[in-house]
């Protein structure tokens, strides 16, 4: 039998009773934590290098190419300040991170079927957000930086010492560039450029070859979110390792 009626207004915030707020909260903690840490490192302007290890937050060091820039700011420019805007733009325009920050920081929407906190509706890609359409150009820069980070990893294994160096740092660097490569080469824009833009994968030899590349990028792209987070935390871990090593808080474990 029907029980007493419940006067619940349909159209309120949400009817969901599960922990829909957990995911946006974790994203705020993760991205916010990394944002605060990297900002601190940008202005700390120290401990980017420890022995063979060059932190990814300060590599490559571009200060020598733009010495005139120092005259325009009242603080000492760090290598991190010059290089970080490029990977930052790559990640800010990334199709995965757009989901992460629109849900968590803009609450548009915070979770599925949950009304956002803002009284403003999402206006579309307008103003500064038109930059989101230039993701592929930030991808090109990210690939360039990735090449340098692979070189830094070779240095961590003793490329310039003349003999093989195998230490904990080397493995951390290797893990980091592998994760960064998985993230970069699983990019949605790259997936489009290598073959996604084609309508016919069987029409000629060129499109057949591009289909195979597209399949591989698609495989990486399937878990773009996982690569995005893993590579973010690996950058964090490697930088902490280099910083602590340089400060003298920890020592590298050398096998060779």
């Amino acid at each position: 039998m029907a029980a007493a009626t419940q006067q619940l207004a349909w159209g309120r915030f949400t009817l969901r009773r599960d922990a829909w707020w957990l995911q946006p909260l974790l994203v705020i903690l993760g991205l916010g934590g990394f944002g605060l840490y990297s900002t601190y490192r940008v202005f700390e302007n120290a401990h980017y290098v420890a022995g063979l290890y060059q932190s990814p937050l300060g590599s490559p060091d571009l200060r020598g190419y733009v010495p005139w820039l120092q005259a325009f700011v009242p603080f000492t420019i760090s290598p991190a300040l010059l290089i970080l805007p490029f990977p930052l733009l790559f990640r800010l325009t990334c199709y995965y991170y757009r989901k992460a920050y629109y849900r968590s920081f803009f609450t548009m929407p915070p979770a599925c079927a949950v009304r956002g906190a803002s009284s403003h509706a999402y206006p579309g890609e307008r103003g500064i957000f038109l930059l989101q359409n230039l993701h592929r150009f930030f991808l090109y820069l990210a690939i360039l930086i990735l090449v340098i980070l692979w070189y830094d990893t070779a240095l961590a294994f003793g490329l310039e010492t003349g003999h093989l160096v195998v230490g904990l740092g080397g493995f951390l660097f290797l893990g980091n560039v592998i994760l960064l490569s998985g993230y970069t080469f699983g990019c949605h824009s790259l997936r489009h450029l290598v073959g996604g833009k084609l309508d016919c994968y069987s029409c000629d030899e060129g499109s057949k070859a591009r289909y195979k590349v597209w399949q591989r990028v698609s495989w990486l792209n399937t878990n773009h979110m996982g690569w995005a987070w893993a590579s973010l935390f690996s950058i964090w871990a490697v930088d902490l390792f280099v910083r602590f090593l340089d400060i003298g808080l920890i020592r590298d474990v050398r096998l060779l």
């Binding site: 359409n133 230039l134 993701h135 824009s189 489009h192 833009k197 792209n221 399937t222």
Partner: peptide, 15 residues
Amino acid sequence: ITDNGIIPLKERVVD
């Protein structure tokens, strides 16, 4: 829907 449909369409619009 997003990864295989909407984003590829967005990229074609970018082109």
